[in-house]
Structures are given as structure tokens and as C-alpha cells.
Design a protein around this nucleic acid. Sequence first.
DNA 1: GTACATTCTCTTTTT
DNA 2: GAGAATGTAC
Length: 759
Amino acid sequence: MSDPFDLSDSTSNSDSVKPRPDGPSYLTALNEEQADAVETVEGAVLVLAGAGTGKTRVLTTRLAHILNSGHAHPGETLTVTFTNKAAREMKSRVERILKHPLEGWFLGTFHSVAARILRRHAEVVGLKSDFLILDTDDQLRLLKQIIESHDLDEKRCPARSLSTIINKWKDRGLGPDQITPAEEVAFADTMASYLYRDYQMRLCKLNAADFGDLLLHNLTIFQNEEQILEEYQQRFRYILVDEYQDTNISQYLWLRLLAQKHLNICCVGDDDQSIYAWRGAEVNNILNFEKDFPGAKVVRLERNYRSTSHILGAASNLIAHNENRLGKTLWTDVNGGEKVRVNGLWDGEAESQLLLDTISDQQLNGHSLNEIAILVRASHQTRPLEERFLRTGLPFRLVGIMRFYERLEIRDAIAYLRVIAQDSDDLAFERIINQPKRGVGNSTLEKLHVVARSADYPLIQAARDLIESDELRGRAKTGLQDLIQLIDQWRELHRKETELPILAQKVLENSGYLEMWKKDKSIQAPGRIENLNELINALHEFDTLSAFLEHISLVIDNSERVEGDMVNIMTLHGAKGLEFDTVFLPGWEEGLFPHQRALDEGGLKGLEEERRLAYVGLTRAKHNVMISHVANRNVFGQWKSALPSRFLRELPDENIVETSEILASGGVEEINEDVSDWNRPKLGRRPSNWKRLSQSSQQKSNFPETPPDPTPNAFRIGLRIFHQKYGYGKILNIEGNKLEVSFEKAGTKKVMGSYVQPT
DNA sequence: GTACATTCTCTTTTT
DNA sequence: GAGAATGTAC
């Protein structure tokens, strides 16, 4: 069975390889450019590797070659990737080439390597080596508290915006002291840098670091303690970097500091696949490489071993519309193949249906479902697909959409464990204090905060003190007392080195947390209990609680079921680095893809990044691509009419086959006019007057999701109608396109005529 | 003061 | 359609 996560090149490129009688066998499988990139061991090397040109092969072979040829011991190499998946893959492939397992080297994500270094020198930046790594959710809670503590209006100064601002500063390597007045942004009357400083102080008190801190603290350590920097510079004789186009400034500075001594750095990347600018990635890092490392060797990999010429043609033409790129010409000698299919459909329902039908056909024709992927722009697009898959009974897996460790119940359970591990973990304590309900509400919590703040000690300590005093009474007091007692018991178990699964089991049972979900009769509850059991199960793999907590904060991998033959559903971002026989790309509509927000916030740059995303999507496919767009999409429970994505216009006719069930009168021509005008109207603002060519999909499905017919209904008073949300009702009055309706269940409401249907 | 019901706002992508 | 913020009932 094929493994969907196998990053190996689909096609062996042995046919194109000139015989290379010299050197070890792993080198003989490379083409000329690849071999050049691998064998240029000394000095700085930039490998510009287009999609499907054997990038991973080059990186792994190069590392194996450095080790095998005696240039360095594993401990003298540093290899950084962006995802744990990529790191794992790289490790196993290098070990496969060398035919023995390796230990003690630095191979991992930027964040995990930085965390490892930071733990060794935490005291330099005022942390203890067992500092806690906060994830996005924790960070947001903390910022919210800080905003509240300064009596700022949360509506006008949302924690989310502040986190974006602070993260951006951190991505650029700027600590609170480096924020110049010119850097200050409009947030709460230029209080952002002040709040940033406050936030960092809070983190320090909590003995915690957020994702950005891992790199930023590393930089501080390197800049302040020269001998520590030198130690690492000396140690890392060879540095390898994957996905260099995605590095942000602090990662870039980090790499540059580390590489300064030996200057043996090899970065692999593709500017056309840079899709993380929103996260601070700086494409200039790749564009400036030769300036940063004078005399650097640049190797271009342009021979594509993955896709057919039609797919490559479509992708190349699309990406050629970007102005900001180094420019590469991918080529293949695999000619022909099937053209890229483009389908216009009436609504999301019809789209899902078409996808499922096509997939069923492929399955009948003996295709492996593992080799099929549906790549969406935004994760909420997966839900209607899921429902359709479940109804049809076709197996599927969601890759990276709902991360296991981000689930509510898992986060709660982990919070319990965190409280056991660290007294100072206020965030975790706050999370579990009234979960399950034990009568400790907001006002009690506020009292705890006041005490903790004035005495400058952890929340849990404040709880202990308040129980002793007369401040609390009733259920708040007993509830809190019981909780503290339980925590002390659990800590005792932990001290006695109770096995983690047993400890967790006891925690979940004694706390009543498990019971809470057992009593819950919502549909999700059984699934949550299952997840909790899965968590207990996962704990078997860890010896200590702190090892587990470290794992979850950085290796937030999904516990996906990889086994079995299933269709892969994931976001375009999540698909980078993967490849499949058949790729479905639904939702190519203006506003969704390119996403309106990317355009609003990023302008032309935003558009170009969206286009790169489209390029990434297309180039995942080996043999078949099917793109689809719909005329009506239900966003938010509201029907919006949508125009086909401008990207469709950028695919050459000779590489595509277009079929459409819809016909636009007005609107579609407008999309053709001026490609450089990125500022399109918002999704559905302009009526597009779609006409359905076939009624088939409407007849097939009489689900309430069916969008309103675009032709105006002849409403009259007394007509019985159906509304999606309110159900059946009678029209009482008509004012323009607004109707006053007396609903059978929901009472009298005013609704838009376009949202009701005559029955 | 807490728990429950209701309203209101957002949803791009992630280590 | 969910999660949080707000309002209302104990």
C-alpha cells in the first residue's frame, strides 16, 4: 500500500542519470545538478529547487554524504526544517542511506532545536531550564489578562490583534527594547510596545516562553554571551536548511550567527513556494543569499520528476503572472497525460457530489485512495466534504485540520497535568479551576488574582491562602478546597513516580472531569471521552511528565490514522512537500481563493502569495488535477454568489478542459478585464445573475442547503414560504425585498426575500 | 455569586 | 455554526 506521507520522489530519475562510476552508490541515483548540490560540501550553497525536482532527495543525500565521507560526526551537523513531519522523514531517509541509526545530532524544526539550546542556557534570559512553552491559545489568554489589567476596552484592543503585533515583532527578531517609536503601531494609542514589555515580564514570572521567544531568546543569548555562541559556531560545522524561503528574520539571524565560523551552510528552497509571509517569512532571505554569503554557489533544479506536462504547463503559466520571483523554468520529458479539468458548478453541494462521484469512479478503476487528495484554501471548507464522505461511506482522513492536542478536552486534561508539574502555571490552573463546575466562578477567580498579584506569587498559592482566610465561603470555598486537596494528592503520586497513564487516569476520574463528559448528552461527548482515553494511551510512550509536556508543545503532530486506504483532505498549506496521483482543488472562487483577507491586508503581495499557493496546489499532482468553482456558496449560513477565481484565467487553454453547469450573464466578463487589479469586490457583493444550465443537481438534492433560486420570486401576501433558519411561515407584508413573515415556530420576523423559498 | 440561556461575533493559512 | 461575551434566573 502506498504511503501518502512518503516524501520520496515519485519517479526514480535513474533514466536521466549519466553513469557515475566513482563514489558511493547513493550518489549514482542523482542527476547532474542534484549531484553538484550534494557534492559541493564546503562553503555556502543555495539550492533553488522547483516543485518536484528532488529537493528532499538532495538534502538527505547531502547530509548522508557529509557523514559518510567523514567530513563531520552527526553531532557536528545542524539540520533544520519547518515541520516535524519533514524532520522525521529526513532522519529516516538519512538512516536508510547510511544503513544505521544515528543519535545525538541536531535535526529538527527551528523551534525544537531552539528550545533545546534555550533549555541549556535559560538562566541567561531569566528563565529556568524547565520553562513552559506556551502555545497560541495560552498566549491569547495571557494577553487578554494583560489588556484587562490595564483597563483597556477589549473590543477596541482585541488580544488577537496584539498577539499578531507582538508575534510579528518577534518574527523580526525584535525584543521589547528594540521597538523604536517608528515601529510603534496603532494599537490602544500606541501602547503596544508597552504591553509587549509587560507581556514579556509576565512570561518570565510564569517561567514560560511562547513560540517566538524560542528563537528570540536564542538570539539574545548569542548576542550577550559570546562564548556560548562560539561553542555552537564551533560545533556546527555543517548546516542544512530546508524550505529556506519560509524562514523569518529571526530564523535568518539565528542561522547567520551559527554559520559565521565555518560558513558551511546549504539552504534549499523555492521562492515560488513561499506561502508563509503572513507568518513573517521573508522571501528576501532567499533572494539575498548570495549577498549574505559572498561566493555562494547557486544550484538550480529545474527538472521535474513528478507531474505530467499538462499539469506543469498549467502551473508554470499561472506562476508566471507573479512579478516578484527569481524565475525558473520547470521541464519534464513526460509528455501528454490528462489535461487539468476545470468544473463550474451550481453550489457546494454539487461540488462535493462531483468530487465524490469522481473519486468513486477512480476507486472502481483500481486507484488507491491514499493517492488522492482534496486540497482546500480554508479549513472550514472541509466540513461539507466530511459530511458527504460520511454519507457516502468513502473512507477519508483529515490531515492537520483538527489537531489532537488542540481539542478542548485534551487541553483541559493537559492543564491538569501542567498544574501537577508546575506550581507557577497560572494559565493551566485557571483553566481547570472550575472545570468541571465546582462553584468557583468569576468573582472568586478575581479575588485570587488580586491576592496573587499583590503578593507576587502563583495563583494556586493565592488559593491556598484564601482558603485559610475567611474571604471565601459556601461552595466557592469547599470547591476550591477539594481541588487543592486533589492536586496535592496527585502531586504525591507524581512524586512517587506513578506511571503516567495511571496518574492521568486517576486525575481524570478523581477530578470528575471524565464524569462530566459521561453525563453530557451532546453528540460530541462520546468522541471526547474517546480522545481522553487516547491521550492516556499516548502517555505510555513517555517516562516523565516534563518529557511529555515538552513533546506536546512542540511536536503538535496529529495522531492521524495513517493506516488504511483513505482520501486525504487537507489545506493547501498543509500539502506542501507532499504529492499525490490525483489532486482535487475545490473552491476556486474570488474571495475564497484568492482569499479576500489576503487581498485586503496584503494587496498585490497578498495576491502573489495566493497565486503561489495555487501553484503549490497544482504541483502536488502527478497525473490528474480537477479544479472546481461554484456559483453559490454557503458562507456562514448565508448564501453568497461567487465569481470564478481569476487564477482560472491564468491557466493556458491548451492545458485544461473546462466544463460548466452554470452560465453567467454579466459579471464573468468583468473578471477578465484587468488582471493587475487585485482589489476585487468582496465575495458576492456584486450580483452575478447565475443561470443553471442543468437542473439535475437541484433535483438530486432537496437538502435545505440548496441556495435560493437567483430569479426573483413572485411573493405575495399570504404565500406559504420556507426559511432556512426559521422554518415554515406565511408572508404578512412585503416591503421591497424585505418580507414580514409569521413563522410557525419562530414567530413574526422580518427576513430578506432572497432567503426564503415558496413551498 | 453562580449557572444557564441568549446574543453576537468571526473564521486564512501554522511552528 | 461555534465560542465567547453578555443578560437573566436562581
